[in-house]
Structure formats: C-alpha cells, structure tokens
Computed example of a mutant assay.
Amino acid sequence: MKTFLTVSALLLAGNCLMAQTNNELSPKEKNQGWQLLFDGKTTQGWHNYLKPSAGPAWTVSDGILKLDPSVKEGRGDIVSDKEYENFELSIDWNIAEEGNSGIMFTVHEDKAYENTYITGPEYQLLDDKKAEDNKQANHLAGSLYDIIAPTKAAENPAGQWNHTIIRLKNGELTFWLNGVQTVKTTLWDANWAELVAKSKFKTWKDFAKFHKGHISLQDHGYHIMFRNIKIREV
C-alpha cells in the first residue's frame, strides 16, 4: 500500500528535521574539522569574562543560548574557554527590536583589560532599523565595528534568525551575513594601522594586537539569542 502525505504534513516533517539538526554536526562537517562551541543544552565551554563560569543572565532553553538583561546577576560578556588563532566561526543569532550586541574575537583575557572589546575586534550585531546605534554605516549589522562598513545590507529583521560566518587566517579577515560577504580586510598590515587610526580605537594601544584569543558574545544590555555555534581551525 502506498502512503501519500499532504503538503502540510511534508512541511511539518521538514520543520522537525531542521529542528533536530540544530546544534549538531553533520558527517560532512565532522570530516571538515568543525566542532561545536555550544551543545544546545548547557553553557559548557563558555564563561563570563574574567570569571570561572557563565552567569545566570546567560541561560539555555529549547536549544538556544539566551541573554536576559533583566537578570542582574551574572551579567557581562561570555568568552569561549579555548583560544583560537586561524579559524572559521559559524553562528546563528536573533536580536530583539532596538537590540545591539556583537561577536568579538582574538580577545586576550587578562585582568589588565577590563572588557573584551579592549583587545577584541567586533563583528557587529544590530537591529539596523530601530537600534539607537544605527547612524554610522560602520556600526550596522555585519560591519567590523567602527572600522569597516558592510558592503551591503543583508540582515534579516529583528526577531528573525541571521547566519554569520567569521573567517580569520594569517591575518586575512572575512565576514559573511546570510550568505553575503560584508567585510574583507587584512589585519596587522600598514592599511590596517590606517583604518584603526581613523576609528574610536586609535588610542587603545592593545586593540586587535593579539593574534590568538577567545571568541566572545557580547552583553550590551539587550535580549539576544544564539544557536548552531560551530568553529574549525583553518
């Protein structure tokens, strides 16, 4: 006997399949060297900057890592337990209306630096439509914050999922947002020095100076969610 599925049943089955694959690695990804930075169940592998573990403001439910800024205890940026130098990071994010956040990388964790952004460049996460910090092009989603504006707008609206890739190899840095390449530059060369000199970081002596460091998810005081956080060394 043949069984026929309705269109709605097929869609439901497809949605279930997609849900099952969140926070998992496919056989192909495993062969390519990808590793999960988020298991979909706990904050294992992450800790608040300069703290031993992730605080209560960072929670996990329904396979999603969430920041709730209304929880006053345990606020602050979280960083990966491990450090990375040449890597490719893949991550989904969903920001609230008016939201502002970021992904920092090559963050040097040391008591000499009060915050992650003092050493780590930032891939900007923003509600481009309603966030207060949407006046400068190099502050929009997909930008290298305050340094390079995205080549084009590629963000899905607040409340919807976005997909980001950050690739850093031997100083060559590339950003993608929802499949669109938004930034391509080279760190630590003469042109990079000129770019930083024109930014708000021009007097920060250790900004982006470290070639290896932690990945950081920013607490900027707005609700934000993450899933499918994957990394591979390149």
Rank of each mutant, 00 (worst) to 15 (best):
E97S: 12
Y123M: 07
T116V: 01
L144G: 02
K51W: 03
P52D: 10
V60D: 12
F87H: 09
I165K: 10
I224K: 04
D68V: 05
E233W: 06
K30G: 07
R227C: 06
K230F: 07
H220W: 07
T116D: 04
L67A: 11
E109T: 09
G120Q: 03
A154T: 04
D62S: 15
R75K: 01
E88C: 05
K72L: 11
I229V: 03
N31E: 15
G159K: 01
K152W: 07
N86Q: 04
K41C: 05
A19Y: 09
L5K: 15
V60A: 11
K184A: 08
E172N: 14
N134E: 00
W204T: 05
L36D: 03
N115Q: 15
E122D: 10
G74L: 00
W46T: 01
I166E: 00
Y145N: 12
H223V: 12
V79E: 12
W192Q: 07
Q218L: 10
F175V: 02
S216V: 04
M225L: 15
L173M: 12
S8C: 08
P56N: 10
N178F: 01
A197I: 09
Y84I: 01
S80W: 04
F4H: 13
G120E: 07
S216C: 08
K129V: 08
V79M: 09
N48F: 07
T119N: 06
Q218E: 14
D92Q: 13
Y222G: 02
D81T: 07
A137G: 06
K28F: 13
R75P: 00
W58Y: 14
K66D: 12
N191F: 06
T174C: 06
T116K: 02
K202D: 14
K169W: 06
I78H: 13
Q32K: 04
E24C: 12
H108T: 06
H220E: 14
F4E: 14
A190H: 09
T164C: 14
W176P: 01
I166W: 01
K169S: 06
G76W: 06
D92E: 15
A96I: 07
W204L: 11
C16E: 15
L195N: 13
L173W: 02
L173Q: 02
M104A: 13
A190E: 15
S90E: 15
T182P: 00
D127S: 03
E29G: 02
D68L: 01
H163F: 08
G45T: 07
G55S: 04
F201H: 10
N22T: 10
G14M: 15
W204M: 10
F175N: 14
M104T: 11
L11D: 14
K66N: 11
A9F: 10
A19F: 09
K184I: 07
G14N: 14
